[in-house]
């Protein structure tokens, strides 16, 4: 059984590449934002806690689709002002950049909660032990807290990355030619919705397998030295 793609194969492949690029760029931005958010939220200083809390609540409360649309259409004035500042008055935000910003922002807000949960899940005794050993606060964070956080946060982050990868489909709305957009183009041309949406679904599944494999290796590495729970 072969599936006739009516010559849309190369376009779909190009779409997959775009999806991967978009997801990885947003992941990088999101991890940084998430770590900063979690540090702010668990900080002993109230203004930081408030800032972190506001960021994660505000962003998590609004649909990703709305963020994509808002950032793409709503950023015009801000970007133009920035453009004039650096002497490029015709500056505009590309669909790709808008997508990375929107998805990174959303990923970061959720990652804030995952990282925060991980920080809280580390027994107090570990930190106290670090202090008793005379380690400085930054050293306790980088040597004691961060490596353990990683292990606890990984499954949660993995979940979020799967969500992120599929949210890239939303960026098709502002015209970025990723898998979903290419599948829609193909449906318009061939009038075969089931075939092409199924092909697109299988492509996302393939990407998920790739991501899951990577995650499995990472989780195993991070969980070294811990007993397997039943």
């Amino acid at each position: 059984m072969t599936i006739d793609l009516y010559g849309f194969g190369p376009l779909l492949a190009a779409g997959a590449l775009m999806t991967v690029k978009l997801a990885l760029s947003a992941l990088c931005l999101g991890l940084v934002l998430g770590l900063l958010g979690a540090l702010a939220k668990t900080s002993p200083y109230k203004p930081f806690r408030w800032l972190g809390g506001t960021y994660s609540t505000l962003v998590r409360g609004v649909p990703e689709l709305l963020w994509v649309l808002l950032i793409y259409f709503g950023s015009v004035n801000a970007v133009r002002a920035l453009g004039e500042l650096i002497g490029m008055p015709d500056l505009t935000l590309s669909a790709f950049a808008a997508g990375v910003l929107a998805l990174g922002l959303c990923f970061g807000a959720y990652a804030t909660e995952v990282f925060r949960g991980a920080i809280l899940a580390i027994p107090k005794g570990h930190r106290e032990a670090g202090m008793a050993l005379g380690l400085s606060k930054p050293r306790i964070f980088t040597k004691l807290v961060l490596p353990q956080m990683w292990r606890i946060a990984l499954p949660g982050l993995g979940n979020l990355f799967m969500i992120l990868m599929k949210d890239t489909a939303l960026v098709s709305v502002i015209g970025l030619e990723e898998i979903m957009r290419q599948a829609q183009n193909a449906v318009t041309f061939t009038k075969q919705p089931f075939t092409f949406y199924m092909v697109a679904a299988v492509m996302y599944l393939g990407l998920t397998i790739l991501a899951m494999g990577t995650l499995y290796v990472l989780e195993r590495r991070a969980a070294r030295g811990f007993a397997r729970r039943t």
């Binding site: 970007v79 453009g83 650096i86 500056l91 590309s94």
Partner: peptide, 9 residues
């Protein structure tokens, strides 16, 4: 900026 934005200037 050119890396992030599409400039048509």
């Amino acid at each position: 900026a050119t890396l992030v934005f599409s400039a048509n200037a």
